[in-house]
Amino acid sequence: MRDRVSRRTIFAFIGPSIIALALVGIAPLLYAGWTSLHFFNLTKLRRVKFIGLENYGTVLTDPVFWEAMGRTFFLLASALPIQVALGLGIALVLHRPGLTLLKTLTRLSLVLPMATTYAVVGLLGQVMFNQKFGVVNQLLGGADINWIGDSTNAFIMIIFWDVWQWTPFVALVLLAGLSMVPGEIEEAARLESKSWWVVLRYVQLPFLIPGLVAVLILRTADTLKLFDMVFTLTRGGPGSSTEFISLMIQRVGFRAFDQGLASAQAIILLIITIVLAQIYIRVFYKEV
């Protein structure tokens, strides 16, 4: 059994982290809470005044906010299935024995997209998807597709980059899951059944579930956070067709200067995130 440790010792170990996270993580939130209850426009700082929950009322009834929220989940719902399907395919290929060198090289190249600066992915998108001198249109046989200036195409382009950057993550997580399947069980199953589908469904899938859950949680959080790549690629445009939730809040706060309203939006986003995280973690995750 573990021996008892005094409160003072515990605090000496964990206190500094709590204080640091409280200062940089909670103090700003309290300040945002205060701001959200005020009319607070950066260009009209003399007219800051308490207006109660008015900002929250505005956000909750604002179609722009809910459209951005819907767009964010639509992105998640369109990119994630592609990432899981491709990722699973890649993991299954890499899991097969043989071709060791080639597979090691493939695994290495899968690390690259994930490590790439998100902002640079956006800048690369600008260059590669340019209508006139972009290489993508050239590779499509000299197509004349307006990627960045068209709402639907811009959205497809965002999905493309999200899939490019995060499919490797899904693939590596699922590959790690596949390697947890005991070798003799997999061998026995392969002797029993010739169909790869049966082996996948009844033997390998149980080992993939934790990985799929982790992917779901992390991709949800990352999509709610998504900012850098879209900001450098489309700035949320054209119109508001790629304005996801974090971009919208940034626009309201720093380009329309309405910090009061943006703070209310941020706090509602925070509540949605915490509720989702609670649900996900309580349902799926083992804790300390």
């Binding site: 300040y31 945002a32 959080a221 900012f227 940034q250 703070s263 986003l269 995280a277």
Partner: peptide
């Protein structure tokens, strides 16, 4: 999990 924009404003 918290979006950085939530902290960026305050």
């Amino acid at each position: 999990m918290v979006s950085p924009i939530v902290l960026a404003l305050p």
